[in-house]
């Protein structure tokens, strides 16, 4: 759960305005939560401080599938309709020391399930996954399906460093 001292930032829905703009524009109406067919969007709890009541995604629980219903329904422009490739939520980061495919267990679920397969995640010539950061939008499907515990691929939200 996000907290006051969480330095990574929240993973915002696709098409989110930048943090300052979003925090001043979001009216916490929860329409984005209701419209998401995957129940991927949650609202920040009180411990999220200024982000209380604003939408975020926990990809381990339920990732975004880039269907783009949420920016369409947002009444205030906190979420702005964009193409899936421009969703700009964050970036996937792969830990090769933990990733099964780099360690003798042939997996590649992240590549298989990536909505932008062959653009955001590719396989090298030994069938090991590689994230192409320029193309990755940070939807979180890879982090959700990764079978290792803890996950070998995680999303770094676009927010704070």
């Amino acid at each position: 759960m996000p907290g006051f001292f969480d330095r990574r930032g929240l993973l915002r829905p696709p098409g989110a305005a930048d943090e300052a703009e979003l925090l001043s524009t979001c009216i916490k109406c929860a329409r984005c939560v209701e419209v998401c067919p995957f129940q991927a969007i949650r609202l920040g709890p009180i411990t999220a401080w200024r982000s209380y009541g604003t939408p975020f995604i926990d990809p381990i629980a339920s990732p975004c599938r880039l269907c783009m219903r949420c920016p369409e329904i947002c009444p205030t422009g906190a979420l702005i309709p964009v193409a899936a490739e421009a969703a700009a939520m964050g970036t996937a980061r792969l830990d090769r020391d933990r990733c099964y495919s780099y360690n003798g267990i042939v997996c590649n679920q992240c590549h298989r399930e990536c909505p932008l397969r062959e653009a955001a995640i590719v396989l090298d010539e030994l069938l090991q996954p590689v994230v192409i950061e320029q193309a990755c939008v940070g939807c979180g499907v890879c982090a959700h399906v990764c079978p290792s515990e803890p996950r070998s691929i995680e999303i770094k939200p676009r927010g704070r460093r």
Partner: peptide, 21 residues
């Protein structure tokens, strides 16, 4: 809860740590 367990193997010429669980 599955953890990776190590096993240093040569694979087929490709030096790699082959892990199990």
């Amino acid at each position: 809860a599955l953890v990776l367990i190590g096993c240093e193997c040569s694979g087929d010429g490709t030096p790699q740590t082959m892990r199990g669980v």
